[in-house]
Design a protein around this nucleic acid. Sequence first.
DNA 1: TATTAGCACTCGTCTCTATTGAGTGCTAAC
DNA 2: GTTAGCACTCAATAGAGACGAGTGCTAATA
Lengths: 348, 348
Amino acid sequence: MADSLNERSQNILEAIVEDYISSAEPVGSRAISRKHNFNLSPASVRNVMADLEEMGLLCSPHTSAGRIPTGKGFQYYIDTLLEVRDLNRNEKQNLRNSYRFQNMRMEDIMQEVGRVLSGLSQYTGLVMAPKFISTIFRQIEFVRLSQGRLLVIYVSETGLVQNKVIEADPTITTHDLEKISNYLNSELNGLTIHEVRAKLNQELQNDRVLYDKLKKQALSLSCAALQDEIEDQLYVSGASLMLGQPEFSTPEQMKRLIQTFESKKILIDLLDQGQSAQGVQIFIGSESSHVDLEGCSLITSNFSNQKGAIGSLGVIGPVRMNYSQVVPIVDFTAQLVSRVLDREIEEK
Amino acid sequence: MADSLNERSQNILEAIVEDYISSAEPVGSRAISRKHNFNLSPASVRNVMADLEEMGLLCSPHTSAGRIPTGKGFQYYIDTLLEVRDLNRNEKQNLRNSYRFQNMRMEDIMQEVGRVLSGLSQYTGLVMAPKFISTIFRQIEFVRLSQGRLLVIYVSETGLVQNKVIEADPTITTHDLEKISNYLNSELNGLTIHEVRAKLNQELQNDRVLYDKLKKQALSLSCAALQDEIEDQLYVSGASLMLGQPEFSTPEQMKRLIQTFESKKILIDLLDQGQSAQGVQIFIGSESSHVDLEGCSLITSNFSNQKGAIGSLGVIGPVRMNYSQVVPIVDFTAQLVSRVLDREIEEK
DNA sequence: TATTAGCACTCGTCTCTATTGAGTGCTAAC
DNA sequence: GTTAGCACTCAATAGAGACGAGTGCTAATA
């Protein structure tokens, strides 16, 4: 239905959205008729604006103010009017140079990406590391802590290191542990955690295994080590940049925003939702979707390596965000990170 | 000089500080003379207040407001008037129960401590993990990533896992790596990183070593792995709680505070300064000390295990903080964490 | 001599009012 | 269909006046 806008209405909507993006203030008919040369008087523009308001694409804070796009208006702008140009060769190179990935740990890469995204966009950068469950087994090591407590160190194909403390038979010797890790490293190499779990369960059900004490220990240890879900890692950079935006200028809004960022849960859920999609996604926060993200927009894209580990990155800013500038940055960064992850893996 | 206050002046100063702590508003002479039964008229109280103002312990925002303690006034209160009672048995037990340290990784413990400190105090919790340099070598492992790039995993005595990517001779085999890590694990076990570095440097200068290719590789790898300083880990919890405090109620103050928390550097420096001291320390932020921490007070204590790894924890809140409540919490938590760290180490 | 009652004074806060100006909707003319 | 004109709305701003909490000073009191 909204697609039935005629060209003039589209042009005016576009002008209003873009003026609003750069000024953060309600846009009046006079400003539109003057700055953009549509050769239309303010009165004509007003007529169109009234129509757009009727359709729910614009609203006015009060009678004597100009108009601002509604969430629906922004949605229409993004779906229909926004033209995302690709970065040119130069811009790509600049972006590439912004990131320094040499000899960085996975965590550092994630953090660096967040920082750069935030710095370039001047909004808040988000990066969610690939989930533990989607990683591929590379190596496992055991370190004895106190009596009966073991530190398990797990390394994924991409060099992501996770560790965990588990309880274990206190009589187990260091030598046994070494044998166990050697066994597991050769058996499980190259499998996803998903596959690893399936294999472990299968073998545990296999009765014959029980006669081999060492193997039994190996299985129960690795079960303990790999069974739990490890909570998602979300890196938030440049939260304070959001506080400079006029839409979050009151103390209450600031407080709510910082709380939302601090709890991370809402952001993780949102990024999770987008994990199945391809390419750049835009989420516009409104009262209807998530009350804590009212007034925020999220531009995200997933990155992944060839082995299927999927993470997400993006930028969160006010709904009044400069989409045409940020979308290509997010897009290209996701491609860049995907390539970097693949490079982490040894070419065999 | 400030110690030359007579008893009445001390009582009045104490009353003012405590009233101000609970109300966050300037305290007037009438309120003091009524609520506390000094048997003094407001006029007499006013005389004393004028003296205290002269000495720089109080100030008034404007002529017709009450008075508030200056930084110096708070300092005097803390040094001379504040009585910190020990927690009783019950309170200690409650505090102990607030923390759940079972089978937690070092990182989780640090994070949990920050969360609980923040929750109990209703201010912002800070925890700085023991520095890499102060940890004791336990184990090192190498994982091959791509050509010529190695992931080094280092585990300290307390189960702290650090990892790092280094460049290495691409021709080195997995088998060699295993021998190298075995060699290093037996040679370096129980040394501090400091001692490890000294030992490595010494051996590298020893010419004879150069004939043993494997040993040479082991030394150069471990040098690369352990030489850099690893940046301090600071956990900040409950930053948004500070935004509820009236002293940070304006957008500018909020923004500055969040920026300060986000950069972490200033906080780390401050905690570093206190690392040599014993017991609870209180830092009062004023324009003179650190402009970004104006209006903030920091209550910290160090924790350490018997092997000398030192970390810091504490609470940051407004200068108008409830010291008598928070100081014992910080103190006891530091003791608790110290004991937990020791328990992490295998009893041999 | 220390204390206190009394009083004039200060100054931030709140409320009410008037003014301004940007922007609208409607109507009539083009 | 477009536009000029005009009355209208309403947020923002500024100023005036009342209010009140609190002070400093002085003179009286114990």
